[in-house]
Write a protein that binds this DNA or RNA. Sequence first.
DNA 1: CGTTCTAAGTGCATCATGCATTTAGTCCGC
DNA 2: GCGGACTAAATGCATGATGCACTTAGAACG
Lengths: 114, 114
Amino acid sequence: MPGWPPRDILAPFILLAVSLQRAHGYMIEDSLRALGLFGITMSTLYRTLRQMEKDGFLESTWEPGPTGPARRVYTITDAGHAWLDSSAAMLNTYRATIDRFFGLYGGPGDPPTR
Amino acid sequence: MPGWPPRDILAPFILLAVSLQRAHGYMIEDSLRALGLFGITMSTLYRTLRQMEKDGFLESTWEPGPTGPARRVYTITDAGHAWLDSSAAMLNTYRATIDRFFGLYGGPGDPPTR
DNA sequence: CGTTCTAAGTGCATCATGCATTTAGTCCGC
DNA sequence: GCGGACTAAATGCATGATGCACTTAGAACG
C-alpha cells in the first residue's frame, strides 16, 4: 500500500517509542514495526527525527555503539511529552472516526472484533 | 491540523457514503463531515472523486438539481464495492495499530473509553 | 440583462515521500 | 596497514498529493 502509514501518525508513534526508551534510528525503526507500522523508509524516518528535533520534541547526542559507527541517540523533551499527549487525543478522535465508519459499514472485511 | 485527515482514509469514506446513497460533491462533503472527516477541501474532494471514477470505483451522471446548475451524481460500482471491502480490512488493521499505541501509552489525553 | 448563487473544475506553489546514492566510521581478515 | 563488508545516518532528485485562490458555467430572479 503506497503512502502507508498516514504521515500524521508517524510522529506520535516515534514519540511514544522514544518516551519508553531513548533510542537511535535503527532501534526506533524496530519499535515502530513492533507497534505495527510497516513500510517506513529510513529516509522518511531520519528526516522526521531531524524535524522533530528542530521542533524541540526530541534531543539527540552522539554515542558510540558496541559495533559500527556512532549513533545519534534521541531523547524526548518536555515539549515532546506535551506533544505526545495532544497527539494521543488526536489519535483518539481518529479512532472514533474509524469506529463511525464501521458503525455504518455492513460488508465483510474483518468487522470490529470486540 | 494540517494534512488532516490522512489521505488513505478519504477514499474509503467516500465509497461508504456513496454506497449508502448516491450523491453529488456537496452532498458527499456533508456525509464526510457527519462521519467526522473535517477539513476536506472541495478541490481535494473533487479531484479524488474524478480519480476514483477513472479507477472504476465510481460512475457519474449529470442530473439537474432542484436549484442551480446540474450536478455530477456519483454511484458506486461493483469494483467500488470490492475496494470498499478491502479498504475496510485496511482500516481495521489501522485501528488495531492505534489500539497498540494506547496499549503502551500511559499519559492523559482521552484514554480509550471502552 | 446582469447580479447572485450553486456546483464543479483548474493553475500554481508547496510539501512529503520513495528510491537510489553518498558519506563516514568500525570491524575483520590477511 | 589496507581493502572489503557492514552499520548508521543523511541527501539529491523526481514524483505525487494538497491547499489556496481563481475560473468556468448554468440557474434563478429581479
